[in-house]
């Protein structure tokens, strides 16, 4: 039960594999284009609050998004634009939340990465790390009560998030309840500025899986094919009733914690090491090597996605902003019990 998978190379090419890969690649590319636009708007002063990018983590994020199905539960975290889009979030809703449009799902009450539509299985993270592990588990318990089978719940976290009590409590509980939960850990080497040496003392985070009694999977997070294969396998195992799965991917955050952060603290040796590779460049190489698309086709896809992103932001930027006079200033859904002393 506790062996780890280690898939690091691209091998056979079945048709399904090609389709899966290219579908995931599209979301990776969309995330990159979306985030580049977002960063540009941020620098232009058009974005209120923080901007957090996933550069270098798109393959891992997309891998989970494409492995999930409609009806599954997904609680993404800070660097999951690709997974969010793959799970079905509309580009416009993402743009709206980042701009603060009143018409977006968060209505200007929350911004950037703190977005979701919980009733559609797309849970909205809070900033306190680790809490989504037990929350997704609760969603899965509800599905179990309702007799819904064939469902998976998944959430993402970073190396720093694994140090929280919430993470521990949640994963332990999910294991006790044998829930179809997948936890994807992006070990991007830094929690904000804190290196992993100050975050944990175990040789590898995946070693913790045995302690929780869950299956551990290890991947090179810069290798898209490995991400798609291993995350896909973890999701399939959870769906098949094998209990919680913990995937640990090694990669490097190729940007600051947020766009306000120049990430000067990142060790240069890591940048030039294999985990410093840009997964999108690796994907281009894998795709062209397999002759699934040529460079021109990839550029053309990028142009098409760029146009979609421009259109989404153009729409969001024209939309009405939140208006304090239109707010009901009420935190309860039960109006009769709200104190109403605004």
């Amino acid at each position: 039960m506790l062996q780890t998978s280690d898939v690091t190379s691209v091998k056979p090419q079945t048709d399904g594999r090609r389709e899966r890969y290219l579908a995931a690649f599209r979301w990776m590319l969309l995330a990159r284009v979306f985030e580049e636009k977002l960063a540009s708007l941020y620098r232009g002063g058009k974005v209120i609050g923080g901007v957090f990018l996933s550069k270098g983590q798109e393959a891992l994020s997309a891998a989970l998004g494409v492995a999930l199905r409609k009806g599954d539960i997904y609680a993404p975290l800070i660097r999951d634009s690709a997974g969010r889009f793959a799970f079905g979030e509309s580009l416009l809703d993402a743009a709206r939340t980042c701009i603060g449009s009143r018409l977006g799902p968060m209505r200007g009450r929350e911004g950037n990465i703190h977005r979701g539509k919980p009733r559609e299985g797309y849970y909205a993270m809070i900033s306190h790390l680790g809490v989504m592990v037990s929350t997704v588990s609760g969603g899965l318990v509800a599905r179990r009560f309702k007799g819904v089978r064939d469902v998976v719940g998944a959430t993402c976290i970073g190396d720093g998030g694994t140090s929280t009590g919430s993470f521990h409590e949640g994963l332990n509980m999910a294991a006790v309840e044998k829930l179809p939960l997948v936890v994807v850990v992006a070990n991007n080497q830094y929690a904000y500025s804190t290196p992993t040496s100050q975050q944990f003392a175990c040789a590898d985070l995946v070693d913790r899986a045995i302690g929780y009694g869950v299956r551990g999977h290890k991947i090179d997070g810069t290798d898209p094919q490995a991400c798609f294969d291993v995350v896909g396998e973890a999701v399939a195992r959870a769906r098949a009733g094998e209990g919680p799965q913990m995937v640990v991917a090694d990669l490097l955050r190729l940007v600051g914690h947020g766009e306000h952060d120049d990430a000067h603290y990142v060790n240069h040796a890591l940048k030039v090491s294999p985990i410093g590779r840009d997964c999108l460049e690796v994907a281009r190489a894998q795709i062209t090597a397999a002759a699934w698309m040529n460079a021109m086709q990839i550029d053309s896809l990028r142009d098409q996605l760029q146009a979609e992103v421009e259109s989404a932001f153009a729409t969001a930027l024209r939309e009405p902003l939140p208006d304090p006079n239109l707010e009901d200033w009420r935190a309860l859904s039960t109006e009769a019990l709200a104190e109403g002393r605004a």
Partner: peptide, 20 residues
């Protein structure tokens, strides 16, 4: 439940989202 108050409430929140 395990002795995990945080996870107990987290589980309840997820279940409530799903209508429990």
């Amino acid at each position: 439940s395990p002795i995990s108050e945080d996870a107990q409430v987290g589980l309840a929140i997820g279940a409530a989202i799903e209508g429990m």
